[in-house]
Structures are given as structure tokens and as C-alpha cells.
Design a binder for these strands. Sequence first.
RNA 1: GUGGCUGUAGCUCAGUUGGUUAGAGCGCCAGAUUGUGGAUCUGGAAGUCGAGGGUUCAAGUCCCUUCAGCCACCCCA
Length: 444
Amino acid sequence: MIEPRTLKGFRDYLPEAMIPRERLIGTAQRVYRSFGYSPIDTPALEYFEILAGKGGEESDRQMYHFHDHGGRHVAMRFDLTVPLARFVAQHVNELGLPFKRYHIATVWRGENTQHGRYREFMQCDFDTIGTKSVAADIETALVIHELLSQIGATFGKPLPFTIRVNNRAVLSGLLSKLGLSDKSVALLRALDKLGKIGREKVAEEMVAAAGATPEQADQVLKLAELSGTNDEVLTQLGPLVAGNAQGEEGVERLRQILRGAKAGGVPEAALLLDVAIARGLDYYTGAIFETFLADLPTIGSICSGGRYDNLAGLFTKQELPGIGASLGLDRLLAALEELGMIDKVRTPAPVLIAFFDAARLDDYLRLAATIRAAGIGVEVYPEPKKLGQQLQYADRRGFRVAIIAGQREFDAGKCQVKDLATTQSSEAPLADADALVAAIRKCL
RNA sequence: GUGGCUGUAGCUCAGUUGGUUAGAGCGCCAGAUUGUGGAUCUGGAAGUCGAGGGUUCAAGUCCCUUCAGCCACCCCA
């Protein structure tokens, strides 16, 4: 016998896990489509050189790659953004610009696992390629906001969250003003930990790992420690980047994003300017976003993204700026689970027809077809077992309604519609589809 | 990738200083006079004690390796 098992960081999904997963995917699709993003897909496997070096050193280390049977050096995608850059560079002429797409697919990273962190997980990306307009930055914030709001609605409970926004141009501007441009990657990485390890340690790391002087570290930190309302922070940022064109533009752009998001319906408290977020991925150049759940911040960002004006430059001479974000489906599911927002339902259909009278299978099948025609999912129990057992089955799987019809009901031309949550039954005529469906709908 | 903690039935765990045929609760399956579930009662199935090796007269219990889970670092969804 071979022991059945799965690889570290890879998981099976049982029905009670897969049902909410599919609901979440459905919500994401609906929201993306409502903003005009179109679906695409790309291969799981790419040439190694396509993916290598695009997400920074860390991504390269975590990438699954190997030589295929034809001797090609291939790699599994570790995100959906780099494949998108290749995709757009390859197909711009067919696509036209600007191009908005969403992409919901599995990605792989060979990193160490942790709660909410897996080696195989699904991302739900949406991006706008081919425009530098701030309108696209604003829309990204709007989509994140709508997405998280709709997810709360889908799972029947509000899901409080905050989107944090920053602009790398502000940080870059300040760093170049301080003559630290060449050390920006290490500095931003240190800065990103501010909320976690505190000012002292970040300053130490900036000196030790990035080679900044204590004074320079202090100046960078001063920027990141600005606090107050969004407007207050914007006001304080002005003088700090004054004289550096990049920094000044960056602040102005943040101002526009915040204003636009408000106009687009994002409440002020939901979108916070946080000058400390930097993000590790090297390719971001402008606005950056992270989203945290108010009730479970420790699980990390569940929707992150930003603007990358140079990414496709490696694949084409044509300028292809872009912006987008990615919902971490599996991490979010782990969070929803922990927050008790996931029902333990193991059936996607709400109605079970009890197979009661062994001679009436055809009648049950006809009944099922009638109910399905009204758009309601129905399962006919496969064996004429004892009614008690069938009801127990219905109860445990999470069916909402049981339809019971035996000799007595058939003789009277009726069936019982039993609401499993309340245990109440009502009678509905077998011949009147509308009345029957109405009786079922009442219980759903 | 580095460091730490953990690993006994599907799940949560018990298992005395290493000592005979490894237990409980929940869950699962089947019954409790062939038409009504989530309660109760009865019975049943189910574990090569994560895997492999070693020490010992004897290992679930000690040692090593490996696999997996969790935590921290790193990084990130």
C-alpha cells in the first residue's frame, strides 16, 4: 500500500472548504466584471527566464523550476503579475490599450509554510495596463473596497477592513534627496517593518544592513512616522520632499488618489495613507496598497498591489505601465474560517427529495426537474432508505428543505415541504409548479 | 532557507520513573415493533502509536534521521 499523503504546503479541499472557496471566487469575478475587467488565463509553466529576476531575489529562491523532458528550463508561476507582463507584451496588438483584465489562478512558492501561508495558493488579480492615469490608481482602490465589502455581504457578516495606501515615489524622492537612492531596496525593506519591530530596531537595521548613517536613518523614519488624518499627513509630507520633483509629484498623486476614492464612494476611514508601507516586491514604482482585516490583522495583508511602470519593459520596447492588486484567496479563507464566518455546509444544493416510496422514483425525478427548472438546486436521495435516515443525511449535509412524498401525499396530489431549520412542514400541490416553488422559496 | 515547539483512531486528547492483548469523548456506521432529522440508549467499524533506523530482555514512552503541522526570522497573498 502507498500511504496517501500530500506535499508540505499543498492541500486537499473537501466540500465544506471548497463550497466557500467557490463562493469567494464568484464574488471576486462579479466585482471585477462590474468594473469592466475581462478574464484571461496563462500557463502555469513558463520559461524560467521569463519569471527569473522579476520579483526580486526572494522570488527566485522560492520559485519551483526544473528541466522538462525536452531539456527546457521551466518554472512555475509564483504570481500572476509577471505572467501578465509577458502576456501583454506578446499580445498588445490584439488587445489594444488600455487593457483591463482579471486573472484567478493558482500560484506556487516554495517557501516555509505558516498559518494562512501555503506553497500552492490562489490569487485573484486585477490589473489595468497601458495607462499612467491617476484614474487607474483610484479605480484600484475602489475595486479593493468593493471587493472586501461584497465578500462581507457574501458571507453574511460585515468584514471590517482598512486599505493602506502609499506612493513609492514619495519614498524614492526623499531617498534621492538624502543621497540614498542606491540603497533604497534595503532601506524600504527595513522601513516596512516599522509597525512590527519598532523605530529603534528599524534604525539599527538601516544602518547595519543598508549602510545609512544614523542621521539618514532618522530622516527616513521621520517621514514614515507622520501620523494624523490623511489630510494632516499630506500637509506634513510637503516640506519633507520639497525640492525633489519625484517626491513632490508623488505627494500630489496621493492627494488625487485619496480625493478620487472618496468621490468614488470609499469612506475616509477605509482608506488610510500610511507612509511606512513599502512592500518587498521590487517592481512597484508608484502607488502601493495593502489591506488588513480589522479583526485579524496578524494574518497579514489579504489584498495587496500597486503601480509598476517598468515591468513589461523587459519584454517589449513599448511602454506598458500598469497598476493592479491581488486578493489572497487562501489567506482570506483562513481568516474567514478563524473569524467563524464559514458555515459548515457540505451540499451546494438546498433541497433534498426523500426517496420514500420505492415504486415512485420516476415521480421524484419529475419533481426534481420541476424544482431545478426554477433555478433551485435539488438532490434526489439515491436509495429508498428509512425516512429518518434520509432526514438525518439532509440535516448533516446542511440541506435547507426536504421534500417528502409517499403514498398518502401522492394520493392527495400533494407533497410535504419541510423546513429543516424550523422542523415545520407545509403542503404543496404536486401539479402546480409555481405554488410548489413558492413554498420552497419561503424556507430558503 | 535558518532556528524552536509538536506528531497516539476522521477530530480533540489520556497513556504513570521504558514492562503484558493502546484508552476516552466527539464523529462515523447499524439498530431501539418497516412514514419524519439535529436528544437518549445499545451495538459496531476504525490506530503498523507520522515514517525509517538504533539502544534495550522489553520502546507509544529514550537516541538519530526523515516527513508533516505550528511559531519566530526572512519574505509575502
